[in-house]
């Protein structure tokens, strides 16, 4: 039972708050011999797996380290070029560490604004009139719960599929939002929420829910 993250999207579709609760780390370290049976490519300032899947390494994963030395961009921390090392036969065997890339803040903003049209389309495409937008979206690895307030602010929780009672938690987050963000005289609407009280209270609620269920919320 895990809650992965919480997002709050303003009525105009911008991300105003996000909190990563538990992010599973997906990393695999493996010794490779020459020639490398995985095709790597440098794009968006990351070295990503372009082709070839094996032992938990998937297409889209990012190269994190070579022989235990972290890679940033295409350079190793000691200044050498990562792709050159991988191409050179004499450097083998190499220990490469791959992992699923973490979402950057930019990507989160992008995804949050992407949800807005999906929500609107879902209510437009309804076979029955006056449908709401997406309330629950399930995939095999997570379940997304969305609650839209009367003013159009959307609260989104990404959680494990079996996690129950998320609709109650969404309303609880709404309560926290109105108590600690809206009642904060320094908070202006539609702007990113930077309120310490909101952060701490949200964290305690999420931890409570994970530990002891929804009984105490």
């Amino acid at each position: 039972m895990v809650i992965y993250g919480v997002y709050i999207v303003s009525k105009s579709g911008g991300l105003i708050f996000n909190h990563d609760h538990t992010l599973p780390k997906i990393e695999t370290e493996k010794t490779f011999s020459y020639p490398l049976d995985i095709k790597l490519q440098y794009e968006n300032k990351k070295i990503t797996v372009e082709f070839g899947q094996r032992d938990g390494i998937h297409v889209g994963h990012v190269l994190y380290a070579i022989n235990g030395i972290p890679v940033s961009g295409r350079q190793l921390d000691d200044g050498r070029d990562a792709l050159e090392i991988i191409e050179n036969k004499e450097n083998y065997p190499l220990i490469l560490k791959f992992g699923r890339p973490k979402m950057t803040t930019n990507e989160k903003i992008f995804l949050a604004s992407m949800f807005y049209p999906l929500f609107a389309l879902a209510s437009q495409l309804s076979p029955e009139p006056k449908s709401s937008g997406i309330e629950v979206l399930e995939a095999d690895t997570f379940k997304l719960h969305c609650f839209q307030t009367l003013t159009g602010v959307k609260m989104i929780i990404i959680a494990d599929p079996p996690q129950a009672g998320m609709d109650i938690l969404l309303r609880k987050i709404y309560e926290l939002y109105s108590d600690y963000a809206l009642k904060n005289p320094f908070y202006s609407l539609e702007m990113p929420i930077r309120c310490e009280l909101f952060d701490t209270n949200l964290k305690t609620v999420l931890e409570q829910v994970e530990k002891s269920g929804l009984a105490n919320v």
Binding site: P24, I26, L118, P127, V136, A139
Partner: peptide
């Protein structure tokens, strides 16, 4: 099409089947 790419990006772990279903108040 957008949901598919949305799901693959926002998923905390690697997906296999990806998007399964969504629910609104009516359908």
């Amino acid at each position: 099409f957008s949901i598919k790419s949305f799901v693959s990006k926002i998923s905390p772990t690697d997906i296999k089947e990806g998007f399964l279903h969504y629910k609104t108040s009516k359908y």
